[in-house]
Amino acid sequence: MAKVFARPESLVDMQSHYCPGCTHGIIHRLIAEVMDELKFADRAIGVAPVGCAVLGYMYFACDMHQAAHGRAPAVATGIKRVVPDGVVFTYQGDGDLASIGCAEIVHAAARGENITTIFVNNGIYGMTGGQMAPTTLPGDKTSTSPYGRDTHKQGFPIRVAEMLATLDGPAYIARVSVHSVPNIVRARRAIKKAFEYQIAGKGFTLVEVLSTCPTNWGLTPLEALDKVAKDMLPYYPLGEYKDIESGAGAKK
């Protein structure tokens, strides 16, 4: 019997610590599939963040470096400068990248650092117990915005893909989602393109992936997927915000 579905070789055969219904597993799998397809696992060096994916260094079957909170792009910069023919990626959440690591991601992007960032945006701090993130939607309740995010007092969410797309350094910036099968297929395509661009030496690439947190959102996994479609997509439109090949997002 022909085998039609298997664990990607670039994903370590072990049980992950992610909550049931969390979409981190899907995103890990997409990266591993692309590593298999483009055959770069033997020269990949991944950088794990602080946040839910802190143990990410265990799951990918390639060299991994665990970074301090928000610093993954700086760590990846150091690695890439030493191993220029390596394929270096960071895997970061919204607290890590869009809050404490804002300076590092902006400057890695501005330098056109030839690395790939997978930015997982679920609008909440997961690992620390559901606190407000820089990407938490207006009105959403979290453990540090118990009355709902009040934009007068707590400011507005940051649209990372749009913000970074204003820079000249990046080669490819896209926002995708994994709340439905067609979107997962598109997400895989974007992740593949990002890595292809890095391998071709085109510069900084980032794929923002809208993700869920059923546990801290207080929703079932299916309700959580619905919330992505209903609440997040209007605030965080999907699409390619910069592509130096097609000219998307290029300066007029």
Binding site: H65, A68, T77, G78
Partner: peptide, 23 residues
């Protein structure tokens, strides 16, 4: 490389040292 901050600089050192360089 002139980093964006001292914090970034030492974390670049962290990455480069991890990759085996004299840094």
């Amino acid at each position: 490389l002139q980093a964006e901050s001292e914090v970034a600089a030492i974390n670049m050192v962290y990455g480069a040292a991890g990759a085996g360089a004299r840094v």
